[in-house]
C-alpha cells in the first residue's frame, strides 16, 4: 500500500522537479473509450492475478531471475499485445485510435 502511495505521488514529484514534465493532459472521454478502457482494465487485472505478474513482475523481475515461467509469460503477453494492436490499427481501422 505504501508502494502504491509512492506510485500515486510520482507524477507530483516529477512535476515539482521539472514543471510541465510528466503532466497528463486530461483527455475527454466518450462512452466507447470508457467501455474499452474498463474492459482493458478488467483483462489486465484478471490476467495479472492469474499469471501472478505483469510487465514489471515477469518482464523485469522474472527475467532478471532467469525464470523460465516469466520468459513464457513475457512471450505470451507480448504476442497478445502485438496482436491486439495489429488488429485494431491495421485490420479494423476506425475502431480506435
Amino acid at each position: 500500500m505504501a508502494f502504491v502511495a509512492g506510485l500515486l505521488a510520482a507524477p507530483a514529484a516529477v512535476g515539482f522537479a521539472v514543471p510541465g514534465f510528466g503532466a497528463f493532459a486530461p483527455a475527454a472521454l466518450d462512452a466507447t473509450d470508457t467501455l474499452r478502457l474498463l474492459l482493458a482494465g478488467l483483462l489486465v487485472g484478471v490476467g495479472t492475478r492469474l499469471a501472478n505478474g505483469c510487465t514489471s513482475g515477469h518482464g523485469v523481475c522474472g527475467l532478471a531471475r532467469l525464470s523460465p515461467r516469466s520468459l513464457a509469460a513475457v512471450a505470451v503477453f507480448m504476442t497478445a499485445a502485438f496482436g491486439v494492436v495489429f488488429a485494431i490499427r491495421h485490420l479494423l481501422p476506425g475502431v480506435a485510435a
Partner: peptide, 27 residues
C-alpha cells in the same frame, strides 16, 4: 500462467496501460 498472460496482453494492447503506469496515471 499462460492464460493469464494472454488476457493481460490483450488488455495491455487494448489500452496501452499495464498496472504500474495505470496507478501513476491515476495519480
Amino acid at each position: 500462467l499462460l492464460a493469464g498472460s494472454a488476457l493481460f496482453g490483450l488488455g495491455w494492447g487494448l489500452a496501452g496501460f499495464c498496472p504500474g503506469p495505470a496507478v501513476v496515471a491515476v495519480g
